[in-house]
Design a protein around this nucleic acid. Sequence first.
DNA 1: CAATTTATGGCAACCGGTTGACAAAACTAG
DNA 2: CTAGTTTTGTCAACCGGTTGCCATAAATTG
Lengths: 353, 353
Amino acid sequence: MTEPKTPDAAPPAGPSKKHGRDGKSSATIYDVARVAGVNASTVSRALSKPGRVSPKTQKLIEDAAAELNYQVNPFARALPTGKTNTFGLIVADITNPTFFDIIRGAQTTATDRDYTLVLAESAESPATELIAARRLMATVDGLILASPRMDDDNIRALARDKPVVVINREVEGVPCVVPDVHKGISEAVRSLAANGHQKVAYVAGPPESWMSERRWEGVQAACDWARLESVRLESSKPTVDGGRQTAREVRASGATAVLTYNDLLAIGLMRELQAAGIAVPDQISIVGFDDIFGADFTTPPLTTVRSPLGECGAGAATRLLDLLHGRGEPAGTLSVETELVLRGSSGRTVPVR
Amino acid sequence: MTEPKTPDAAPPAGPSKKHGRDGKSSATIYDVARVAGVNASTVSRALSKPGRVSPKTQKLIEDAAAELNYQVNPFARALPTGKTNTFGLIVADITNPTFFDIIRGAQTTATDRDYTLVLAESAESPATELIAARRLMATVDGLILASPRMDDDNIRALARDKPVVVINREVEGVPCVVPDVHKGISEAVRSLAANGHQKVAYVAGPPESWMSERRWEGVQAACDWARLESVRLESSKPTVDGGRQTAREVRASGATAVLTYNDLLAIGLMRELQAAGIAVPDQISIVGFDDIFGADFTTPPLTTVRSPLGECGAGAATRLLDLLHGRGEPAGTLSVETELVLRGSSGRTVPVR
DNA sequence: CAATTTATGGCAACCGGTTGACAAAACTAG
DNA sequence: CTAGTTTTGTCAACCGGTTGCCATAAATTG
């Protein structure tokens, strides 16, 4: 009993039931190999290298695997290969509906391509974001950053380690997926011009937001083209509350139409204006950005420049996965179309009686 | 050069830079051990078993680790221990706002306790859900099922493998976190009764939803107690569209107040009624469930029975983590309070002129 | 100060796969 | 029927940690 064990003389036992929390565990390739009567490495090849093993042995092994209900241990596989079949998605704020569709798009693509999605949140803080990113880097094959708050250099540093795809922002040298504001904004401004508006206000988002600047540029350009006056206002934070707080400035600006950095701001602004007895759209037209969940719950429903967020999430995931499989461009921007969703919050200004 | 390598005579090189996608990689405990002048196992102990090594060596190792910028490889650690520091969360539908807060609650708790959250979606299908669950099981230490659609036996089977916590449903023998409908519903019904309503309709959710039944029971009980008549209606799906479709039946039912299985149904119903020229709450009062994001965007804002969803997510995660650390009860239900959020969609019926 | 206990670090096996090198077997061609 | 190829399976090392066992060093005790 106390003699040194002889590792070769494996007892012809059934599948090993060893570790695991309470004595139950799953079969290993060694178990499969024993049942199939081949070497473990053959099992490994049969299961991951199609064609490397003869059809007969393949069948033998597959049957054995099925019988034992074998499942690969992802960790054991990850160790030598470094591949985890997992990618990370970092969003600024999980409760911000802008990200819902992005998350879903990425999640769906992940599952479709047999990857697992790991989700992390940065709470709108560049520092937290960087920590989360570094943390995830250890466990995933690649990373998607949605509306990242950290600076370009940090993003590029991450991208040097593993494939990174950025959503809603352009970073030189890193693959990006960005909604092209042009089309949607010109449609919006054209619609406003057609309704007789002459002065348009843009309520900006956080100063760190790359996208907010693009939108402001888009608004300016479109207004110039349509010969409308444009004015820029600031917001404290890109939320419903932040929108409420801008109501005073909006009124003071003298603009009859407002585009806001995002739908949340638009909704807050609209509610506050309505509470102050100002009719939307009769006195002021409001146009949001993104077309988030709930944008049509309001009265009137919100006119908004839709960004295909789900598409962005899915596109970024596809791009990342392609990169991981050695396909696709290692940099450059994929741009997706935006479009105006005309609902009730914008229209012709009714002359004051 | 071609002689067999001598693994012992390790050259006194710097930190090994080997695999990795493109030649860069991180330090291992062996690198740390070499720099600190101790054995790798000592490094391992210093880093995971506090107090197992002397303070001097500890310091030595920590310095070396810091210098090399060492980070444990989670996979290498997971292999022998079986611990992954990761848990999974499966939700029925990522775009359903009910889950947003649950996700966030779980995510926050995970990060706080140094765990990673893996997210999966079942697309409302029991089969997909089971597949996703099995898939995740291999990679995580435990699982949270939010509003699971699969049957009790399958859940119990999963729970036999690894710790599982269920949200929004009670399963015998499995730890659950469930909002207690009682308080919120009685407040709602009492408020309706006080406003003179006499017949209350309940629009049910999917037949597989355990929670829908609990809510119906709660409504009946509260109505009985308040001596109101209650009637149950069915919905096709628990969405805004589904809500729209129930408008006809609601009107036909003769009820002046409606509680719906969730807020989405309530919003759809309200919009459809309003479109048909029925005033809310003047002609019909509407009360939803959950208090999801956007419930107050409507006009009038939605009265609803709030479930503390974030709390549920956080509570479930806490419970799971406790379980994983050998603390806490292995079964039993944790119930969280619901409360009425009185907004504009409910009130006194205005007599028809 | 010797004897005993306790604290500390090293050795080596192990977790469950992957993979390069190589030998045996099967097949092809001359 | 044999030499030359190609296919197929085996061996053994390796990925980067963890951990039981043991020897030694240090601390405690009589």
